[in-house]
Amino acid sequence: MIAAGVDPISQFEIKKLAELKIGNFDISFTNSALMMVVTIALIALWLLLSTSKKSLIPGRAQSIAEISYEFIADMLRSAAGKDGMKFFPFVFALFIFILFANLLGMIPFFFTTTSHIIVTLTLALMVFFIVTFYGIWKNGFGFLKLFWPSGVPIVIKPFVCILELISYISRPISHSIRLWANVMAGHIMLKVFAGFCIMLVGAFGVVGGSLAGILPFLMTFALTPLELLVSFVQAYVFALLTCIYLSDAVHPGH
């Protein structure tokens, strides 16, 4: 446990809990899969409890559920307009899934699913393909107006078009790395400072180590609320960018 306590990387290790295979693909049930299941189970439990009463004057839990609902609904409506509201369940699911996964990851010894690039990349690609296919299905060739901006002199238009194309294609990369890097870096920082405390005790004994460990302990103490904030902000940013990308699919001409 001490070794796991000081090594800032081991928290990202995936461990198989049950072997599972489909053809050549190893889809074993891992600690990551367990945390995903816990995440959606918690969300379902929370919403089940908070929406069971449906009272006119909301209680605390119902109020939180309604505030989350209106928070995401307002965000999507202001970014993508009324036509974008058909994606509301999708954006809400993204936000709440990432938020719960991030927050659950803050509990000591819990695995953080969003600290793996493949998870955030899958989510970002999901957004990317939904935006692309819906945009083409809804607007046909009109979707290409996204890469052919109006109000730009014809001489530089091709260059702007190339830039727009590159930025469009790189969207899922920035979208996924922003979330992943924030979560992962935060967890490494926390683990490094927390690990310092243990190492100092190992090096200078209980009394000396505890005295020397005050600084890294205070650092860990200060970093924890910061990371809780980052958990929320990154979920918010991911959902907000999804809304902005979706607005391109709904209104490509701006």
Binding site: I14, L20, I22, F25, D26, I27, S28, F29, T30, S32, A33, M36, V37, T39, I40, I43, A44, P89, F90, A93, I96, F97, T113, H116, I118, V119, T122, L123, M126
Partner: peptide, 15 residues
């Protein structure tokens, strides 16, 4: 593979 699989599964249920 396992992460993509479980992510799709859990996210689909959540959705």
């Amino acid at each position: 593979a396992t992460q993509i699989f479980w992510l799709f599964l859990t996210f689909a249920i959540l959705y």
